[in-house]
Amino acid sequence: MLQYLMQRIGLALLVCVAVSLLAFTLLNASGDVAISMAGEEASAAQIDAIREEMGLNRPVLVRYGEWLGNAVHGDFGNSLFFRQPVAELIADRLPRTLTLAVMSLAVMLLLSVPLGVLAALYPNSLIDRAALLIAVLGQAMPNFWFALVLIVIFSLTLGVMPPSGSATLKHYVLPAVALGYYSTPPMMRLIRQGMIEALSSDYIRTAKAKGIGTTKIVFKHALRNAVIPVVSLSAVQFGNMLGGSVVIEAVFGIHGLGFLAWESISRMDLPVVQAVLLIVAVFYIVIVLLADFINAWLDPRIRIQ
Results as ranks from 00 to 15, higher is better:
Leu2Met: 11
Leu2Asp: 03
Tyr4Phe: 14
Tyr4Trp: 05
Tyr4Met: 01
Leu5Thr: 13
Gln7Gly: 12
Gln7Glu: 14
Leu13Arg: 10
Leu14Trp: 11
Val15Trp: 04
Cys16His: 02
Val17Tyr: 14
Val19Gln: 01
Thr25Asp: 07
Thr25Arg: 04
Leu26Trp: 13
Asn28Glu: 14
Gly31Gln: 09
Ala34His: 12
Ala38Leu: 11
Gly39Tyr: 09
Glu40Ala: 14
Ser43Thr: 15
Ser43Arg: 08
Ile50His: 11
Ile50Gly: 08
Arg51Ala: 03
Met54His: 15
Val60His: 08
Gly65Ile: 08
Glu66Gly: 10
Ala71Lys: 03
His73Glu: 11
Gly77Gln: 11
Ser79Asn: 05
Phe82Trp: 14
Phe82Val: 09
Pro85Thr: 00
Ala87Met: 08
Glu88Pro: 02
Glu88His: 06
Ile90His: 10
Asp92Pro: 00
Arg93Ser: 13
Leu94Phe: 13
Leu94Thr: 08
Thr97His: 06
Ala101Val: 11
Ala106Thr: 15
Met108Tyr: 07
Met108Gly: 05
Leu110Glu: 09
Leu110Tyr: 09
Leu111Met: 14
Ser112Arg: 09
Ser112Trp: 10
Val113Ile: 15
Pro114Gln: 06
Pro114His: 11
Leu115Asp: 05
Val117Glu: 02
Val117Ser: 01
Leu121Tyr: 03
Leu126Gln: 06
Ile127Asp: 01
Ile127Leu: 14
Ala130Phe: 15
Ala131Gln: 06
Ile134Lys: 02
Val136Gly: 00
Val136Trp: 10
Leu137Cys: 12
Met141Val: 12
Asn143Arg: 13
Trp145Ser: 04
Trp145Asn: 02
Ala147Leu: 03
Ala147Cys: 04
Val149Lys: 00
Val149Thr: 09
Ile151Gln: 05
Val152Pro: 00
Val152Ile: 15
Ile153Gln: 03
Thr157Gln: 08
Leu158Gln: 09
Gly159Trp: 12
Ser164His: 09
Ser164Trp: 10
Ser166Thr: 08
Leu169Trp: 14
Tyr172Leu: 15
Val177Glu: 02
Leu179Asn: 08
Leu179Ala: 09
Ser183Met: 15
Thr184Arg: 01
Thr184His: 01
Ala198Gly: 01
Leu199Ile: 05
Ser201His: 00
Ile204Tyr: 07
Ile204Arg: 02
Thr206Met: 07
Ala207Asn: 01
Thr214Ser: 10
Thr215Leu: 13
Thr215Ser: 12
Ala222Met: 03
Leu233Gln: 13
Ser234Arg: 03
Phe238Trp: 11
Gly243Asp: 02
Gly244Arg: 02
Ser245Met: 06
Ile248Tyr: 05
Glu249Thr: 04
Ala250Met: 07
Val251Cys: 03
Phe252Tyr: 14
Gly258Val: 07
Leu260Trp: 08
Ala261Ile: 12
Ser266Phe: 11
Ser266Tyr: 14
Pro271Thr: 03
Gln274Ser: 04
Gln274Phe: 07
Val276Cys: 08
Val276Tyr: 11
Val280Met: 08
Ala281Phe: 07
Phe283Met: 14
Tyr284Pro: 06
Ile285Gly: 00
Val288Arg: 09
Val288His: 13
Leu289Ala: 00
Ala296Lys: 10
Trp297Glu: 01
Leu298Glu: 07
Pro300Lys: 02
Ile302Leu: 10
Arg303Ala: 14
